[in-house]
Design a protein around this nucleic acid. Structure first.
Lengths: 232, 232
DNA sequence: AACCCCAATTGACAAATATCAAGAATGTTT
DNA sequence: AAACATTCTTGATATTTGTCAATTGGGGTT
């Protein structure tokens, strides 16, 4: 599908300083496609042929090694993924699959690299985007290095709670198996971690988690803006 | 100390496409300082006031949370650190200390941000640098998520072996306590991991580690270019 | 309602890792 | 060389996490 001009893409900080012509050129080369759930979009080790955006739905970034698999991140609208591989013209380090029915925008990597060479404002926008990505991974890494599984769960719940407007409960963004993998633990362990948090007012009701005592949960979690704050 | 013009800095990919005037301007604002070992250069949470380069010696990037501390990376000459925080004008996510007597170049963050705004080639060089950093952290994260301690050690040894020219032994880049922290384990566990690797031809002699059977160590480690290869 | 399917939980156990305490090895100072 | 401090290793034990197997408990379908 060609000739797409999605306002939600145009307004991304990556593109909002780009000229109309350059943006149209990118979009004319791009593909907008609908995928069902559980479709593999790319695999680690493949050449970076496209830059991807999640327009609707949700994408899991995951990786395999030594017989294990882990979900490294969820990407939701409107987020991009594997920008670094595209710019460096190297292979992907992560695989990606749709975790639900999704609408995906794919821009050929060569067009991105051309625009990067030609368009100064675009190059600068990419810097800030990449710097943000870098900081996000550093935070994930610190989370995994410096916290136990229960602590990671507690802090994740508090983070979701804040982004969802702190209504006293949390809507999980995915099934528990995926949440466990995002948190770097097994599903069995996640169940037990929820059990451990029960005395801190945490009650699981399907995809919804009631936070009955945010104060005591916070004492346990010891949230740290240098790990948990999405904006810093 | 002012008016520094270190050729090893000038030739970094970050700066080699920069004009002489711009580079001189940066260097005129910069400080080149010698520090003894174990000096804290900056602390996580501080405003990003300087971009740092290790000219000589070695710097540890580390972080604290929930009563634990972990070394996240070693920076050796000539490497920079905390570029992302400087560009986004945000607080540092990691702390840094010299692990030995070191010569450090400090460039005021505002000068870096000015040069980034003014100099298109510099902005593009930063993109490739940041993309590389991003990929490096993703690899560290995958290493920690997808491998056991013994596997991480085995792969680290093989990686050092290759970068040191594969002479049949490896010179450790730091003391074992620090190596353990880099690998995300305790010193006791590192000792035991070395013990586990003895049947695979690994013999520890102080800071030197003899690799007597690289083939069988490789079978155990299952090295993966998407985690271990520094260039991809 | 009966059935099935799948996600989720639970229990029993095993593996990996951390902690604490002691001892060995190493290098440095005197 | 003796004394000392430091790093490293080892043993015993506790905690954390993973694995395997069985069971529970909805959500759909027929």
């Amino acid at each position: 599908m060609r000739i797409v001009d999605l306002p939600e893409i145009r307004q991304l900080s990556l593109f909002d300083s780009m000229s109309d012509e350059s943006f149209s050129e990118l979009m004319n080369a791009a593909y907008l496609q609908n995928f069902p759930a559980q479709v593999d979009l790319l695999h680690e080790g493949d050449n970076a042929d496209f830059l991807f955006f999640v327009v609707e739905g949700c994408v899991e970034l995951y990786a395999n090694a030594n017989g294990r698999e882990g979900v490294l991140a969820l990407v939701r609208p409107v987020g991009s993924f594997i920008l670094a591989a595209v710019l460096r013209n190297e292979v992907y380090l992560m695989s990606a699959r749709t975790s639900q029915k999704s609408r995906i925008l794919m821009i050929p990597a060569q067009n991105i690299r051309d625009a990067f060479k030609r368009d100064d404002a675009f190059a600068r926008a990419i810097v800030l985007e990449l710097a943000g990505y870098f900081r996000a991974v550093v935070k994930e890494y610190k989370d995994l290095r410096l916290r136990t599984g229960v602590e990671r769960l507690a802090n994740r719940l508090l983070k979701y709670h804040i982004t969802q407007g702190a209504p006293g409960f949390v809507q999980l963004p995915c099934d528990k198996k995926t949440l466990a993998s995002i948190l770097g633990m097994t599903p069995e362990n996640l169940s037990r971690a929820f059990g451990t948090l029960k005395p801190y007012g945490v009650d699981v009701v399907g995809q919804k988690v009631v936070l009955g005592d945010v104060a005591s949960l916070t004492v346990l979690a010891k949230p740290n803006p240098l790990i948990d704050d999405p904006s810093t």
